[in-house]
Design a binder for these strands. Structure first.
Lengths: 208, 208
DNA sequence: TACATGGCATAGCTATGTTATGTTTTCCGG
DNA sequence: CCGGAAAACATAACATAGCTATGCCATGTA
């Protein structure tokens, strides 16, 4: 017996915050609600605090990446698919660097961890298929390989998207992935073909 | 014909800021100068603004890492030395996670870039020695290998130090480095010995 | 030794996030 | 169909953030 929260308000504020993030406009309590017809209290009813809004933004970022991952096609080349996850990860970090930074610059709430794990799960699947297809050694743990792949993707992304390195640094991606994938069992030539194809399709900087 | 700035004041404020960062105490203009005998204006005379203080902190972090790198011994095993740079990098990120975050969570000033390059230079030297010693292929560009190694170190560090992953994730470090180093010419068994030794010496989590 | 330059203190400014309080809307029980 | 309660929402004040205008005084120079 009470007045229900209007989900549209929450959505409106979140989208506006995302837009301000992209515009690099400082996201402040009052600037966020300005011209929305709502008062500052809306933030507190829907997010509890300004921190709550940032947490929601992080969540948004993770789920967005999860969606991106799930939209990736599943081909008959699991190594290509795994590399494609990396390129998608990097691409997303480049396209939305501020959101990407927000995703990783705070202590994590519990629901965030779940969303992040969702993203990992996609890579785990590709890794598993790689093992089943004989591209990786039998004793490779898919989750481990996924985390290792993630580490490479994240290292490159954070160095380039919000870090000190220029985008050309991304040309080192294929060699890093090849090193990893060959280390866990793939043949170099096949691996180079798969990773190279993913990199080319993504239009990321290539070596030489 | 003026009163010179007292460098001790700047040092005092910087050290205090570093301490508050380690204590996770919020670094605010007034809390920074509290009990120092100086007023808030000291921050503006020595750093220009609060942003200037953060920039100086970043600089501190980079130079500190540069010192750490330079203190590393040079052995007759360049691959071991390169891996030791990675463990030192990770160790520093784990020991001072907040400073590590500050180092990478803002747009870079020019002097910062120089300090970061100084750190890289050490890794470039190890990479060069690795090429000269025949551990890596002749056509390997030391700077490229250094950046690639840095990407691995940074990926692991930022996932663990301020990210969602637990410290055990660091056990994937050796495999990642081995993948990279073998990819650029090292033999697997020798590489495993070198990287494993570095990891063990650092006391970082190991696989298996 | 006089003076001017700039470090430093004091205090007030604006803007931030938050909260206390009042108003209005919506749902539920009669 | 309606009356009341609970919660969304508006208004406005509060605490504290970074910053700056102003004045004092120490210090190097003439």
């Amino acid at each position: 017996m009470a007045r229900p929260k209007d989900p549209a308000v929450r959505t409106l504020l979140l989208e506006r915050a995302g837009q301000m993030l992209r515009t690099r406009a400082p996201i402040t309590l009052r600037s966020l609600v300005a011209d929305t017809g709502y008062s500052t209290m809306a933030v507190y009813t829907h997010f509890g605090s300004m921190d709550g809004l940032w947490t929601a933004l992080r969540q948004e970022g993770h789920t967005r990446m999860g969606v991106l991952f799930r939209e990736l096609p599943t081909t008959d080349d699991p190594v290509l698919d795994l590399a494609a996850h990396v390129t998608a990860y990097i691409q997303n970090a480049l396209d939305h660097p501020d959101l990407y930074r927000v995703m990783f610059d705070a202590t994590f709430g519990l629901d965030d961890a779940q969303a992040a794990d969702d993203g990992l799960e996609c890579m785990v699947q590709s890794a598993l298929r790689g093992v089943e297809a004989g591209r990786f050694a039998e004793d490779v743990v898919p989750l481990d390989l996924a985390v290792q792949t993630w580490a490479v993707a994240h290292g490159l992304s954070s160095l380039v998207a919000n870090g000190p390195q220029p985008v050309e640094t991304l040309r080192h991606g294929p060699l890093l992935l090849e090193g990893l994938f060959v280390r866990v069992g793939d043949k170099l030539d096949r691996c180079q073909a798969s990773v190279g194809q993913a990199w080319k399709q993504a239009g990321l900087p290539m070596a030489g």
